[in-house]
Design a protein around this nucleic acid. Structure first.
Length: 114
DNA sequence: ATAATGACTTTCA
DNA sequence: TTGAAAGCCATTA
């Protein structure tokens, strides 16, 4: 018989979030809110952010393809915003003069932004 | 147990 | 167009 696990139900919600992020195609981006929706958490945008913040260096995940609802890279303590932008640009994502990404064009999934 | 926090979003001026 | 204010909710303290 399987002995009772004492701790361990590793956050399922968080895993679903990671799995959705893993689906964002190269050269496209998605938003915290959209990812939350795809993961079945309609109002969990901040939890998506928390999941990324918590993400250790071990996991290989396209975290850089996640931006906020206004199409901009969110500020944070770590200060990896510039690196994120560079990676996205290398993938072909265009930034407007005001540092914004056109979600109608680069947003994923298709049709979720207008 | 309650209170603060935050890589967010929407609404409204 | 920009920015402030309120709403949101799992995680931390």
């Amino acid at each position: 018989m399987t002995p009772p696990r004492k701790s361990a139900p590793i956050n399922l919600a968080r895993e679903r979030i990671y799995s959705v992020i893993d689906c964002i195609p190269r050269g496209r981006v998605s938003t915290y809110g959209t990812i939350a929706n795809e993961a079945g958490r309609p109002r969990g945008a901040r939890q998506v952010a928390a999941a990324l913040r918590n993400l250790g260096p071990g996991r290989d995940l396209p975290w850089f393809r996640v931006v906020n609802a206004s199409g901009r890279i969110s500020q944070r303590p770590g200060g990896s915003e510039l690196a994120q932008r560079k990676i996205l640009e290398k993938e072909g994502v265009l930034f407007s003069p005001s540092n914004r990404i056109d979600l109608k064009r680069f947003g994923w999934p298709d049709g979720s932004f207008g």
